[in-house]
Design a protein around this nucleic acid. Structure first.
Lengths: 131, 131
DNA sequence: ATCCTTTTTGATATTTGTTATCATTAAATA
DNA sequence: TATTTAATGATAACAAATATCAAAAAGGAT
């Protein structure tokens, strides 16, 4: 894969952000360094980089996909209210394959544990509603 | 929640199917019993039923959401090629909360283990390509 | 049963996130 | 330097899901 300026900056900014941004959120950030970049270039490169395994595409609930520049194995929590995604520190991980008793003929590659919860901000909002 | 004929049949058919259908797949099935039903009614009721916890909305990769009429706790495999979703039988499950060391201030409700694999059909197609 | 209120429905328009198209530009290779 | 190949920006097209709204259905209250 060719290393273009756009591709490099997209990757750089995604790695810098710890917020698991959506394509348009990342576009806004990248635009500050490359004001003439197109949103299509951001989508295209996120796709290519994720195919190459250099970033991760997160397809948890909500409308939009999110992206993660950190490809070291780790789990995420997704806020059921606002869709925010954060990293979660887990106990040394259990192997996916050993959890499965019957895979229904599927050839299993990987297992991801995804947690669902309420983020700090939404917890506060929830409390205010009650009071 | 009012029990309308449409709502009842949507729920009935979703429970009967074991394929984790998308909204439009379920629409096609329901239409056989209610030929005048609108796709909007299917979307609407799937949303309402899932809010009520009577069904599960599955938001794994792919474009479309899928739905599951079986709300007893179980895990899924998603085929990375075709997006098909199947149930997976796992060893007695590890509690989500005990896996987490640091939840980053999130209040965690649930943990979903999502497996990624290749379904039997796509395995066959893969083999044919090689030969 | 009849009136009134609330909810749901069907049809369809709108929105939204993403992907496709295509002429132009940039980079790599001969 | 010429030629091939890939990437870009602008924008059209697409598909899934949601919103709108008048009409119909359901559930009381009287």
């Amino acid at each position: 894969m060719r290393i273009t300026n756009q591709r490099e900056i997209i990757l750089e900014e995604l790695r810098r952000l710890k917020s698991h941004p959506t394509a348009d959120e990342l576009y806004e950030v990248v635009k500050k360094r490359l004001p003439r970049i197109s949103i299509a270039t951001v989508y295209r490169n996120l796709e290519r980089l994720s195919e190459a395994g250099m970033i991760h595409k997160l397809e948890y609930g909500g409308r939009q996909k999110r992206f993660d520049g950190d490809v070291t194995p780790h789990c995420h929590v997704v806020c059921v209210k606002c869709g925010r995604v954060s990293d979660v520190e887990t106990v040394p991980e259990v192997d996916a394959e050993h959890l499965v008793v019957d895979s229904r003929g599927y050839k299993i590659f990987d297992g991801v544990i995804q947690f669902e919860g309420l983020c700090p901000k939404c917890q506060l909002l929830e409390e205010k509603k009650i009071n």
